[in-house]
Nucleic acid binder design. Structure first.
Lengths: 195, 195
DNA sequence: GGCATCATTGAACGATGGTTCAAACCTTGA
DNA sequence: TCAAGGTTTGAACCATCGTTCAATGATGCC
């Protein structure tokens, strides 16, 4: 039964993501991941080749979700600012709601060269998509002239940094934070401001 | 001779910072740090109690530099926007120029509870200083109304994220990047824009 | 010059981490 | 019911890591 195996694999990835998120990749132990996923340490190797492969699939899954969100949010209507804001909100939600797999996508260093190359390529594709949106806004005159690459990376930094301080049990929900953040980040680009 | 000992300690901290930066705290080995600092592994323990203490002093040194930059840049003249921009540039320069010790100030998790408490307290003091500047700008009407804490953390994220992508051998110098970044981050706060 | 203090070394220790493996367990289909 | 193949286990292996330590080398003071 293929379904059962894939479902179990996903459970393990989510468990591993939770551990990676709170301990970091290097500090997380296979025994710890196994305990979180309710199986024995040795059994992990029935589902994955090793720790590096678990991290790889965590990151791959997270990037797929983000790329999908990028396509979805970018395709909908509105001016460049509105489209960009939707993408940023989607990105933040990906990280904050779906806490599990996503946080690990920051730790590219832990991968073997071949796996890392694939992740980096996919990540670059995502960043390029975002930058294109910024560049289009600049070209159209809606955004003020500036270095699109730099601004894109600044946005990504502000968004990814949220995993360091956001507390799901705090006073504000993830969506509120995501929307406020997006509003601020887009405002830095707009020529004139609107209420 | 006290001078000689302190100088050697600083050399070791800078070497350790370089290693932490490229490998991360958990991945960095004492043997590796020793090699980078040109001494034997065992000799490290003549200068520091252990790995956790090395990380502690790296972070402490970085935070001291940033707090000093905050005081200096905040005290000089100009409106809130200009003062804030100067602080942000100083922060980025601290990270990008002084590459060595600074990148490690992101890895608070690697510290023992007592040392971590001291670092976190100092880091919070820094963040509070920045937030006060943002809040003052909002109160004065120079910045638009928004959540000062959120915006402050967004700025810190954008700045700290630079260690992931900035390449000193790239086409742009650290100061250029720092200034562009600061301009964008402050623009998101200003009510109206100026040339 | 000789002594005391500091600096330095490299090998060794204990712990921990990722990984392997042979054996047991469970499920399934005939 | 029985065999077969997929699952699961927990102990053991091996490498590595932070750390210790006894011994050696350098340095400064009288």
């Amino acid at each position: 039964m293929r379904r059962r195996l894939d479902a179990r694999r996903l459970e393990i990835l989510r468990a591993a993501g939770r551990i990676f998120r709170q301990r970091g990749f290097a500090e997380a132990g296979m025994r710890e991941i196994a305990a979180e996923a309710d199986l024995s340490p040795g059994n992990l190797y029935h589902y994955f080749e090793g720790k590096h492969e678990i991290l790889y699939f965590c990151q791959d899954r997270a990037l797929d979700a983000m790329l999908a969100a990028l396509r979805r949010a970018g395709a909908a209507g509105g001016d460049h600012g509105e489209r960009l804001a939707r993408v940023l909100v989607a990105h933040a939600s990906c990280i904050l709601d779906d806490l599990e797999g996503t946080a690990a996508h920051l730790e590219v260093e832990g991968l073997a060269p071949d796996l890392r190359a694939r992740i980096v390529a996919k990540r670059d594709r995502y960043e390029r998509g975002l930058r294109r949106l910024v560049a289009a806004g600049i070209r159209s005159g809606e955004f003020r002239a500036c270095d699109a690459g730099l601004v894109t990376r600044a946005m990504l930094g502000a968004l990814n940094w949220t995993v360091r301080w956001f507390d799901p049990r705090g006073p504000r929900t993830a969506s509120e934070v995501a929307e406020d953040l997006a509003r601020y980040l887009v405002a830095g680009l707009r020529r004139s401001e609107d209420a």
